[in-house]
Design a protein around this nucleic acid. Structure first.
Lengths: 212, 212
DNA sequence: TAGATTGTTAATCGATTAACAATC
DNA sequence: TAGATTGTTAATCGATTAACAATC
């Protein structure tokens, strides 16, 4: 108990550590110091040690960190040491692309279903998952132990569906719609706003050179 | 000259202001105070005023902000008051989804081409844009005034292609590959790491309740 | 043991919030 | 003019970096 609150800045960096450690494993590196990792990742060694020590002492003085061990520990912290069942709502291009991508399954995020309310898509097979109609959604969530809902829908529909799935007991939403969702207490939202990302790129193009 | 450096925290918030202002315009609201906007956006009024005043005084004492004017000004700051030509490299599911989406064109990001090195995709029409082979890429970039390259490729290929397009004069990359790109000085990268986003969601699921 | 490198405390830096005078 | 609300300075808070004692 009495857990200290971890800042979101730290959490934002964890998956990046995880990715670098994964690549180190692939290239056969077994131990690494915070200094060496800091050189590769272009962050300070101090930040790496501070970040990790939010969760425990994973290193050893005079030695550094065992790559595989640290990788596994960060995996546990991130909650990817177990499977997460997911459904995609919205079988448009992006929704289908998510289903088609194998990347998420590799990390334990299992796409159990994809939903839409366009009758023409009903039954269409996307990477072996067939598109279902929205009226089956609530029942499907309950019967298939679904934890995460990804919303790849227009904003108005997304707001409605978000409300519905929360009523069905969902507490984690991966939101690709161009809107913020206002949800009950305790429901977690992770937003992916692609057009905002592109605008930041555009800002940096427009202000290139103002680096002073 | 003597521009003060704007922090990336501010830049990250700008597109969100832009989005809220756009919705206010749609619902016919003509003026808004920082207080009122802060209530809607769940940020402090102080932060809104500080953020905006990095770029100029867009409001009026005793009145607030003119919604349409502020919207347009933020659009200019973000560099979306003009068109940006873009190509997508990697005609997989995600690449095709980006081409199929009309959202980017609406904001002035025009997808001029999509490339792959899979011969089977050559000539395939995606939303009216036909897939080209990579050996045409450099020439296409030069002849079509391409400013932004989106990389929707596996990481190894992305690193290579990034190098190539920089040689062809590209200075802005929208990177969806699961890797960081090391690029020449002055080249801008905006990363979209979907699996990292999903891991943050997973972290928050695993640590739900530790809100103290 | 000597050298290396962590874990952790202290110092610095930057971002957010509060306060209020300026002014529409 | 009086009321409202900005623009901006000052205060606070939090995150990052530096330093170093602990220890493998």
């Amino acid at each position: 108990m009495e857990e200290k609150k971890i800042s979101s800045a730290v959490i934002r960096r964890l998956p990046r550590y995880y990715r670098y450690l994964g690549e180190l494993i692939e290239s056969g590196v077994q131990r690494i110091s915070s200094k060496e990792l800091s050189d590769r990742m272009k962050v300070t060694a101090s930040q790496i040690r501070q970040d990790l020590n939010n969760f425990g002492g994973f290193g050893q003085q005079g030695y550094g960190y065992n790559v595989k061990y640290l990788y596994d520990e960060i995996g546990k912290i991130l909650g990817i040491d177990r499977k997460h069942n997911m459904v995609i709502i919205g079988a448009g291009n992006l929704g289908q692309a998510l289903v088609n991508s194998g990347d998420f399954a590799k990390r334990g995020f299992i796409i159990k279903g994809i939903f839409d309310n366009n009758k023409e898509l009903e039954g269409k097979s996307v990477n072996g998952v067939s598109v279902m109609m929205m009226d089956n959604l609530k029942k499907f969530i309950k019967n298939n132990d679904i934890e995460i809902v990804a919303l790849t829908l227009p904003k108005e529909a997304a707001r409605e569906v978000a409300k519905d799935v929360c009523e069905a007991g969902i507490t984690a939403i991966w939101n690709f719609a161009h809107t913020d969702l206002s949800l009950p207490e305790g429901v977690i939202v992770e937003n992916v706003h692609l057009s905002e990302s592109l605008m930041r790129l555009s800002y940096n193009i427009a202000n290139k050179g103002n680096k002073n």
